[in-house]
Design a protein around this nucleic acid. Structure first.
Lengths: 115, 115
DNA sequence: TTCATTTATCGTATATTTACGATGAACGAT
DNA sequence: ATCGTTCATCGTAAATATACGATAAATGAA
């Protein structure tokens, strides 16, 4: 995101980009899928299902948590992660609204000499 | 994405991450919105609507083109960009299906001691 | 208390992204 | 042919992201 000069874009644009950024790595895409299987939530279990070191997985979990996709609950020395369904619904809604917006103007030009 | 070790994740995971990556910057989010306004498609016009240098905008356009969101048509010395509506529909569909998948298991645990 | 387990964080290396000025290629106009 | 316009690409700097080993913090168990 570089400096991402937040002031230079609208909040809507920045927030949508942030949601997309959380999903912009296959490991994080997979983590959310794993967490949607009710029975899996321990960090260690997630690590075992990914081709990445524990520290790296922890880093990805942190990013997902930062954006809001997941929450973590401490259970003794372990941490149980779970999806934040409220945020999930919000994120999906934002994406769908965005797609609806950009689909509206049905500009079907660009038929020739495609680069 | 680093090496992104494509082999380590499924095609589905990698493709969804790629779609998300294209939307993971506010400038690209904005570019697609701009292009959805039928009357704007010239690269120069897009540059004028963004707080970024021409070279940078061209780079963002290249990324959007790489993933498939847009196409470019050469018109003399100018280039007219437009949305790829087919891809747009496909991308939205992929995202919606993904969200439906991870929403399915309604794991509403994680109520206490949230980190 | 001491040990083993689990996970976050630190330090760090490498890769990628973002940004911009400069340059080059393509083309219309003169 | 030359000039001006438009845009892609090159070179490069700086910021982020990704990955991992090592370590620290927390806690249950012995």
């Amino acid at each position: 995101m570089s400096a991402a000069k937040t002031e230079k874009f609208t909040t809507e644009e920045t927030e949508l980009a942030d949601i997309a950024k959380a999903l912009a790595h296959p490991a994080r895409v997979k983590i959310l899928k794993i967490l949607s299987n009710k029975n899996i939530c321990m960090c260690g279990d997630i690590v075992n299902l990914l081709p990445l070191a524990q520290a790296t997985v922890s880093q990805h979990l942190k990013e997902l948590k930062r954006v809001g996709f997941i929450q973590g609950e401490i259970e003794g020395p372990k941490t149980c992660y779970c999806l934040n369904n409220t945020f999930l619904a919000k994120a999906e809604d934002s994406l769908i609204k965005y797609f609806n917006k950009i689909k509206k103007g049905k500009n079907s030009s660009c038929k020739t000499k495609k680069r």
